[in-house]
């Protein structure tokens, strides 16, 4: 009872050393990538269990929502669908025109991206990180680096794929950066996450650049990871300090990072750049 277990120092050296090596090189070694995928399957039952209360409350709400509420919701959805369909008519015409113009200019036709709806089943518990778990994995064709969007704009990319679940790194996470351009004048920049859910930072924007509050930032497609043209953010603050070489430009993500329950995984036709 009071005897110390043997060689606890040796165990610490072994396991501590192993975990230090994992911290330092674990995410850089490609050899370990399949192992990580296998291990992430371990988290599935845990996330299933944690999601149980949310599922129960959602189901009971569905069961007890009144007929009146359902009718109201139905009407609202019908109205929205009508408006969207009206907009779509114009869009089809514009799309045809766009293709004709592109043909005239001899530039390649833009491919249509297809999307798959995924449900968010968990968010990162560390408030300093901005990650999601979604219920689509390699079985549904998800892959590492796949862009993820919601109804309003670009949300992030997949960084970890399991069989049934994947992990999405959102654009506001401070480990994330995305090439963007200002839709007004085509100016290129890099939008970095700041760790705050409602803020992006534009890196290395020269102080003399033409950029204004309210400018829309769209993905530029440079770097080959994100398809071009998806809304990323809106410039909220431009501070030019004559003493500094770069302007300080802040933007607000267009996608509802803290709200989306359903997200879309984008399958682009273009070849993936590794």
């Amino acid at each position: 009872m009071f005897s110390k277990p043997p060689s606890s120092g040796g165990r610490l050296l072994l396991l501590g050393g192993l975990s230090l090596v994992l911290i330092l090189v674990g995410s850089r070694l490609e050899v370990l990538a399949p192992l990580r995928t296998q291990l992430s399957a371990l988290s599935v039952p845990f996330y299933w269990l944690v999601d149980v209360p949310a599922r129960i409350s959602e189901q009971s709400r569905g069961m007890f929502s009144s007929r009146k509420e359902l009718i109201e919701e139905n009407q609202a959805l019908r109205a929205e669908s009508l408006i969207l369909n009206a907009k779509l008519q114009k869009y089809i015409e514009l799309r045809a025109e766009n293709v004709r113009l592109r043909e005239l200019m001899n530039s390649a036709e833009r491919v249509n991206d297809t999307v798959v709806v995924a449900e968010v089943i968990a968010v990162a518990s560390d408030p300093n990180r901005h990650m999601l778990m979604v219920d689509k994995g390699s079985r549904h064709g998800a892959f590492v680096g796949q862009p993820v969007i919601d109804a309003k704009g670009l949300l992030g990319q997949i960084i970890d794929v399991g069989l049934m679940y994947s992990r999405v790194l959102m654009i506001a996470d401070s480990a994330h950066a995305i090439p963007v351009r200002v839709s007004r004048n085509g100016l290129r920049a890099i939008a970095e996450g700041t760790g705050r859910i409602d803020e992006l930072n534009l890196a290395h924007v020269a102080a003399t650049t033409d950029i204004q509050v309210g400018d829309l930032l769209v993905s530029s497609g440079l770097g080959g990871r994100f398809p071009s043209g998806y809304p990323v953010g809106e410039v909220t603050q431009v501070a030019i300090d004559p003493g500094k070489p770069f302007a300080e430009v802040r933007a607000r993500p267009m996608a509802e990072l803290d709200r989306s329950r359903n997200v879309l995984l984008v399958f682009s036709e273009r070849p993936e750049v590794e």
Partner: peptide
């Protein structure tokens, strides 16, 4: 693995703490 953080960070700190306590 559950948190999707750097693999080894919690393992390392918990192993060191376990040693100190032991």
């Amino acid at each position: 693995i559950l948190l999707g953080v750097v693999i080894g960070q919690n393992a390392f700190s918990l192993a060191v703490i376990a040693y100190i306590v032991q």
